[in-house]
Write a protein that binds this DNA or RNA. Sequence first.
RNA 1: GGCCCCGUAGCUCAGCGGUUAGAGCAGACGACUCAUAAUCGUUUGGUCCUCGGUUCGAAUCCGAGCGGGGCUACCA
Length: 551
Amino acid sequence: MSDDHRPYYITTPIYYVNGRPHLGHGYTTVIADVLARFQRMLRGSGAEVFFLTGTDEHADKVVSTAASRGMTPQEWAGQNAEAFEAFFRDLRISNDDFIRTSQDRHKAKVEAYIRSMLDSGDIYKGDYTGWYDPGQEEYVTETAARENEYKSPVSGEPLEKRTEQNYFFRLSAYQDRLEELIRSEQYLVLPEARRNEVLGRLTQGLRDVPVSRAVGDGASGQEPWGVLMPGDPEHRIYVWIDALFNYLSTVDTDERRHLWPASVHLIAKDILWFHAVIWPAMLMALGRELPRSLYVHAYFMMGERKMSKSLGNFVTPEEIHAYADRYGIDAFRWYLATQGPWGANDADFTYAKFVEVYNADLANGFGNSTSRVSNMVAKYFESCPDPAGQTELEGHDWPKLTGEAVCSAVDASGRLDVASMLKAGLSLVRAVDGYINTTEPFRLAKTIESDPHAGPRLAAILYHCAEALRVASLLLYPAMPDKVAELWRRWRCSPLTDANNADSGFVAPLAELAAWGGAHSLKPGQHIEKGEPLFMRADPAEPEPGVKPAG
RNA sequence: GGCCCCGUAGCUCAGCGGUUAGAGCAGACGACUCAUAAUCGUUUGGUCCUCGGUUCGAAUCCGAGCGGGGCUACCA
């Protein structure tokens, strides 16, 4: 809010490239997209908004999986990274860049960062001792080892106590500063439950963390996969450390350096520790500014069970495609953005709830309201009517109502409260519906022949309805860019630089676009086209959309 | 074991010391017919998990307990 003049830089995690994309990835990325689109609209043309997502590629399993498929790690990673990019295209994600950690632009930066930390003594060589699972070729944590009575959780074979040389990051040195930064909200961790979680764990003390792996570890590869430790080719940078740097490496160029620090990192709760503790500490070691905030959401559940690949109950890109085919991808985005596990608690994804929300908010709400208004305008006036300067009728002060809705949305966006931000637009739609019932323009239209006052009054009422819906549509745009752009085309009121491209920029900042009677308002006499319903009503009795059998 | 979060209408949740506890959805009744059998209004519905305590006053603060979830460091 007060940072309007600063660049807005928002990130999602970079996704583990060995896996297939699913609803969880889509959720985080859609929310980031909604926030990014809102910021672009808020700031208007020339907006400094940068939205980053990407893939995390240097895991050992990428090497072994690639080998089992007869591919090089780079080929395998490339194939899967493309699957993520395709998934995000389907979801209408408007990221400004897509970082892959196997790209040279990233690896070169990581090497430089590590070198700098070696020079400063923040990274040092030491001994790592832990419980090693020979079958899995990996270390298990002390806790996990104890719980499994020092046997492999996978094979049941006894674990070996092993010691190896490793490079460590001096995390312990940053404990006090980190605690202070989080406590004072200079590094804002949201929601509060997660902030407490981090602070609670910080009081237990921090140990230095290993940041390297011996090159021989993991699947035995020909060429080392990842970034080698500067000056010590026997070691590689541990994949997690490598991955975290993406947020910085991508913008650490002459053209983009001013974007740092990031405004918001969005993550799911599983990777809280890395982002709330290790990442900011590493940035301090590098002498870089910390991101402004970290938002940690919970999980989407499928019914009672946690969504996971092993349970096979995660929503796939194909299933999402089936939803999009029937309801439009915008409706799917709306559901994610308004019903998702924002906050600390998990949320359910169910078909029944999807239909309920779709019908209530979109078909019966936004879609129907635009239809009835478009229809009456077309039927009674043929083009946008002239309100003749009237702004208030029947106790509805529209400039005030729309202004308040915009403020409410802007305020919610500042708090990263995405659902409230969008509901501000929907509440305007509801207000229009109520206004129509109170003022009964359709009844007024019947007296237009006999009553000389009826015509002007009808014109004013319908203009208010249409103009209020236009403002509402701006607030709904971040979640539903294509449907809203469609409405703007029908009403000849697109604020986009290219009305046919929902991703093109905005010609002015939101405050100007949303101004009642301003330069971008509906103009009397301009064409208003009704068109087909924006959202066809869904039949709850219809079975859930699924992947259609081939053919 | 330790720490944290949650437990409020049938459902999803807001409220986090102060008048008769709210919203959306679902239900019932009524109104209306411009619209996608849509919309609008009214309304039903709650021991605010339990038991204690603090207070003039608690869903809201404190203690204990019950139920659900999370974290406990290198595991997307």
